[in-house]
Simulated assay, not measured.
Amino acid sequence: MNLQNRTRVIVLLVAVLLLGAVGTGAVLYAADRTAERDRAQPGGPAVHSGRVTLTDGGGGRQLLFRNMAWGPQRDEITTVPADRPDGPRTASGVQCLRFHAAAGTGICLQAVHGALEDTYRAVVLDDHLRERRSFPAAGIPTRSRVSPSGHLAAWTVFVSGDSYAGTNFSTRTSVVDVRDWNLRENLEDFTVLQDGHPLQAHDINIWGVTFADDTTFYATVATGGQTHLVRGDLGARTLTTLHDNVECPSLSPDGTRVAYKKRVPGLSADAPWRLYVLDLATMTETATAEHRNIDDQALWSDDHTLLYALPGDYGADLWTVPADGTGSAARVTTAAVAPAYLG
């Protein structure tokens, strides 16, 4: 080997060694940053793997949710006693981006990680969180609900866009009857009735189903830059408008009121919502004592109290506030989202 070639080989070897050192340093730096983050924000509430079911099993009322605490159980559905929501969590091993459950039926919206891109699916779970059936989902999961009987499951995904804050998004909402697997794949196929007449529009979006029973539900319909609360009839395949400026409704256990997020004039376009409650008999609105921006479908803890998610150190925390406008908001537990009460 002549001197020129030997020099080239030496230069190449030095370059390879330098690249290796840089790569090793990057890995060590990333590991150190991760450790630093975990020291600054330890995993959050204690979480351990165990048996999780959608029945109380005689153990009293349970609160289930997607665990957001750092660690191997992040994104798993976990359970805590409802009267000790900040206590140690039992993790199920089932990961969901969105989740809800009632009467032994669960709906879990999952990501399926592919080599080139992620896809999504809606999974119906039995009372032991085992998969009964799954359905392809057309986009990013955002809302889910199960009817009080456990017979119906609904989910909403973003087909395009990833936020309700603007106008450049499209949703798809589906409802399935788990008794015969009759799937209403897209509620936009239903007839929207406004002032007793069919509404003709090409920009309709529907999201945020909440069930009254196995026939009647409520949801949001958006068209023409406006949102409306609608009452849905699965048998008649209709959606009847009831009230304006209602998003992500949640029906109270007694069926008399709807909690929802309302766009309040004068607020930032990026944080436009406040949490309200609507009396369905009188259409009277009541602002809750939660004065921060709410981008969630609230859950009723009982006939008097709302539970909802707000941004937190681990992604989201659960908060509560009275439904009648009194009191003040209080944090229930950290590192949690997509709750459901059982029992």
Rank of each mutant, 00 (worst) to 15 (best):
V176M: 00
S49H: 13
V175F: 04
I206M: 00
P311V: 05
A281Q: 15
D126T: 01
L251S: 01
Y341S: 03
A222S: 12
R172H: 06
H202T: 13
S252N: 09
V258E: 09
P148M: 02
T215Q: 15
P272V: 00
V124A: 04
L63C: 08
G57N: 15
V47T: 14
Q200K: 14
T191R: 15
D83A: 03
T79S: 14
R237F: 05
L18T: 12
V146C: 03
R33I: 08
W273A: 05
A340H: 03
R66G: 07
D32G: 13
V22I: 11
H48S: 12
A219N: 00
A165P: 00
T238N: 06
L278I: 08
F211S: 07
P311D: 09
D254Y: 06
D244V: 05
G114Y: 12
K262F: 01
A46D: 10
R37I: 10
R98I: 05
A111K: 10
S163L: 09
T55F: 10
H243T: 10
R6P: 02
A15P: 05
Y308G: 01
M283D: 06
Q73A: 11
R172S: 04
H304W: 05
S149Y: 07
P42E: 08
R179F: 02
H291K: 12
D295V: 09
W70F: 13
G43D: 10
A201E: 04
R179K: 11
P88V: 07
P265G: 09
D233Q: 12
P81L: 04
D244R: 10
D162K: 12
D244C: 00
T220R: 00
L183S: 04
L251E: 03
A212N: 08
A82Y: 07
E285W: 11
T34F: 12
A271Y: 07
V264F: 05
D32Y: 15
G166D: 14
G87F: 11
I10E: 09
D213A: 11
